[in-house]
Amino acid sequence: MEVKPKPVQRKPLEWFNLKGKRVGFWAYVVMRLSAVGLVLYLFLHLVILSQLAVGPAAWDNFVALAKSPAVLLLDVVLIIGILAHGLNGIRLTLIGFGLGVPRQKLMLWIGLILTLVFGVLSALAIFAETK
């Protein structure tokens, strides 16, 4: 009797399955999520800029909304996303050219620490403006 193996199910969601994975994979996931977030932000940014064409009142309404704590928090998330994606992108570019490959994990941690430091500093600066 022929035995048919259970076929492999190719699931894109496996890209986000963190079970048993290590720090390099976490960076892989963050890279993808931040990329999607930044693309969505780009379109949101264009939609917001289109308010300028609607008129001064529409723009003033947006500026009032942009100063609300919830939107300012989104600004902090945006900055953290840019830092995480950009710094890891520099790491990936370097190791893709064979530079610093033995220290790729150290570069990852340095990028993470810089993201957190500048993320916190950005949050402090943004929310200090509102006081």
Partner: peptide, 29 residues
Amino acid sequence: CHSSFECTEACPYEVYPGEAIMRLKRKVG
């Protein structure tokens, strides 16, 4: 290859496939 280095983490011997792929990218590039 998207450089997650899970292959190197999983390898039970000292093959370091992730590092080898980076050297290969450099060569091909």
